Computed example of a mutant assay.
Amino acid sequence: MKGVLLVNLGSPESPTPKDVKPYLDEFLMDKYVIDVPYLLRALLVRGIILQTRPKKSAAAYAKIWWDEGSPLVVISKRMHQKVQKQVELPVALAMRYGNPSILSGLQELRDKGVTEVLLFPLYPQHAMASTTTILVLAEELRKKHFPEMQLTTVPAFYNKPDYLKNLADSMQKHLEGFDYDHLLFSYHGIPERHIRKTDITKSHCKIDGSCCNTPSPAHEFCYRHQCYETTKQVVKLLGIPEGKYSQTFQSRLAGDKWLTPYTDVEVNKMPEKGIKKLAVVTPAFVSDCLETLEEIAMEANHEFKAHGGEEFLAIPCLNDDQQWCNTVSKWINDWAYAK
């Protein structure tokens, strides 16, 4: 029997330092997120970051928290329910960090008699710190607890026409009536070394401005290429002229060279370039979360206006948009009934 496990990032149980600390510990101690040797990672995370970050992060989560709970988890549950209504297979929901866990999701499916699982990471672009860590953990859990199960993975869908149309249509709907000067595509940042580590050719990714546009097998797992490709295809669908849009990367940690240009730096420079009305979309996420609701809709909005900007529009993620849920359901049904 077939079943599906949708997997998103996850969230603390509450916006308090007490609950944020174990969540951050699980997240930052992941060797695919901070990819340094264990002892160094433990020193960095538990010796330095977790001494101050939980309080600061809890305050940020408190600003976006809904009555029903974490926005990311609430939205993921709504999407899950809409998808389940359109498919006959059992569909479970899990988070990579926090609850519901991948272990509980696989257990739920096994309890329903599922032996063949479609593992569906809810990330349009492939990255070591998002997709890879889900695949590795799911396989470890399968081997240990569910050896009879088979896992099939949904690959990055950044270039799937259905997804691109959903994204473009959603953006167009939210941009209606907003006469923007500039549209910014802001993707979650990752360290440059992650790009090189996921280069299956071991030689293509130079991060030099040309490699992402030069065809290569490396692009199958190259986050940077996939982000630029998403932007390129959406811009084409919406007919946005050159010069009226750009792409940046947000949410970096200090110390390493991360993908550039940086969202906060670029946003702050825009008003002096004559950009007074800015729209920002965050296509690395399918569900609104701390990085979109607090970092962009609140912080970037505030900074943009503090530097002379006038109007700021944070375009919501696809969330539980019916068109998007229809697409996910269609992909699941295509897999379920494939010969």
Rank of each mutant, 00 (worst) to 15 (best):
K2E: 08
K2A: 10
G3S: 08
G3F: 06
V4Y: 04
N8F: 10
L9R: 11
S11P: 07
T16W: 13
P17A: 08
K21D: 03
P22R: 08
P22N: 05
D25Y: 12
D25M: 15
D30Q: 09
K31R: 14
I34P: 10
V36Q: 12
P37L: 09
Y38C: 13
L40E: 05
R41T: 01
G47T: 03
G47S: 05
I48Q: 06
Q51K: 13
T52F: 10
A58K: 07
Y61Q: 05
Y61S: 06
K63Y: 03
K63P: 02
W66L: 10
D67H: 06
E68Q: 06
S70E: 03
P71T: 03
V73G: 03
I75G: 02
I75S: 02
R78P: 11
M79L: 11
H80R: 11
V83S: 13
K85L: 11
P90M: 07
A94Q: 06
G98F: 01
P100Q: 12
P100S: 08
Q107N: 07
L109F: 09
T115L: 10
V117Y: 05
V117I: 13
Q125A: 15
Q125M: 15
H126T: 15
A127H: 02
A127F: 04
M128W: 10
T131Q: 13
T132F: 13
L135A: 10
V136D: 14
L137P: 12
A138H: 07
E139L: 08
E139P: 06
H145A: 11
T153R: 13
V154T: 14
P155V: 15
N159K: 15
Y163P: 13
L167C: 14
S170K: 14
Q172L: 15
H174N: 15
G177I: 09
F178L: 12
L183M: 13
S186P: 14
H188S: 13
G189A: 14
I190F: 11
I190D: 02
I195Y: 04
R196Q: 06
R196T: 04
K197W: 14
C205A: 09
K206R: 15
G209E: 01
P215W: 02
P215V: 01
P215L: 00
A218H: 02
H219A: 04
Y223A: 01
Q226H: 00
E229V: 01
T230L: 04
V235S: 00
I240R: 02
G243W: 00
G243I: 02
K244A: 02
S246F: 01
T248Y: 00
T248I: 00
R252I: 00
G255E: 00
G255C: 00
Y262P: 00
E266A: 01
V267T: 01
K269E: 04
G274H: 05
I275S: 01
K277V: 03
A279I: 00
T282M: 02
P283T: 03
A284G: 08
A284V: 02
S287D: 08
E291P: 08
E291Y: 06
T292C: 08
L293N: 08
E295F: 07
E299F: 12
E303I: 09
E310W: 15
F312W: 06
A314V: 15
C317S: 08
N319A: 12
D321I: 14
D321G: 14
C325Y: 07
Y337I: 15
K339V: 14
K339N: 13
